[in-house]
Simulated scan of single mutants.
Amino acid sequence: MSIYIYKVALKGLYRVLNRIQKFFLSADQLLVRQVQKHQYKTVSVYGIGEVGVAVVSLLTGKGIKLEHWYDSKIATQNNHYLGHTLTPYAELKHDRSEAIIIASEAFTEQIQKVIEDNLYSGTIVKLKP
């Protein structure tokens, strides 16, 4: 067989393995893996629910700097959670992190709209369907 056929077969196998990992890894692990894959050094997180807490914990353990932590429930400055400052989502337009992670399984589309409406200019990292 030619090298081309092997390359095509390997690409197909790689896609299948990527789909399989979704069944074995949690949402927070999948999101942080995307951040690591792109080698982002500073990120922000949108979501203070269960997934958000787990993502922030993993980021800290991986040495990735948390720039801002947002949630729709945060409307004013000077809020803190688990030792981190929470930022009102209206401040998204000033965020200069390399990427923002949508830390939600259920509200990804709504959160993405809020992020885009508030003129965030970095990359959006989210769970893939």
Score class of each variant (00 low, 15 high):
residue 2 S to W: 08
residue 3 I to C: 10
residue 6 Y to I: 05
residue 8 V to C: 08
residue 9 A to I: 14
residue 9 A to T: 10
residue 11 K to H: 08
residue 14 Y to H: 02
residue 16 V to Y: 15
residue 17 L to H: 03
residue 17 L to S: 06
residue 18 N to V: 00
residue 18 N to C: 04
residue 19 R to I: 07
residue 19 R to N: 15
residue 20 I to V: 15
residue 21 Q to C: 03
residue 21 Q to S: 11
residue 23 F to Y: 10
residue 24 F to Q: 09
residue 24 F to T: 14
residue 25 L to E: 08
residue 26 S to C: 10
residue 28 D to M: 04
residue 30 L to P: 03
residue 31 L to T: 03
residue 31 L to S: 04
residue 33 R to S: 12
residue 34 Q to W: 00
residue 35 V to T: 11
residue 43 V to D: 07
residue 45 V to M: 08
residue 46 Y to D: 05
residue 47 G to V: 00
residue 50 E to I: 03
residue 51 V to C: 05
residue 53 V to W: 00
residue 54 A to Y: 03
residue 54 A to F: 04
residue 56 V to N: 09
residue 56 V to P: 06
residue 59 L to K: 08
residue 59 L to Q: 11
residue 61 G to Y: 01
residue 64 I to P: 08
residue 66 L to V: 15
residue 66 L to F: 13
residue 69 W to N: 12
residue 70 Y to K: 07
residue 71 D to K: 08
residue 72 S to K: 02
residue 73 K to Q: 13
residue 73 K to H: 11
residue 77 Q to T: 10
residue 78 N to K: 02
residue 79 N to F: 07
residue 80 H to A: 14
residue 80 H to M: 14
residue 86 L to E: 14
residue 87 T to V: 12
residue 88 P to M: 05
residue 91 E to W: 05
residue 92 L to P: 06
residue 92 L to Y: 06
residue 94 H to P: 02
residue 96 R to K: 11
residue 103 A to F: 04
residue 105 E to A: 09
residue 105 E to G: 09
residue 105 E to Y: 05
residue 105 E to Q: 13
residue 105 E to C: 07
residue 106 A to M: 15
residue 107 F to P: 05
residue 107 F to D: 14
residue 107 F to I: 01
residue 109 E to R: 10
residue 110 Q to Y: 12
residue 113 K to E: 14
residue 114 V to R: 09
residue 114 V to K: 11
residue 114 V to W: 03
residue 116 E to Y: 07
residue 116 E to W: 05
residue 117 D to R: 07
residue 117 D to K: 11
residue 118 N to I: 06
residue 119 L to T: 10
residue 119 L to A: 15
residue 120 Y to G: 07
residue 122 G to I: 04
residue 122 G to H: 04
residue 123 T to W: 01
residue 124 I to W: 07
residue 126 K to N: 03
residue 127 L to K: 01
residue 127 L to M: 10
residue 128 K to Y: 01
residue 129 P to H: 00
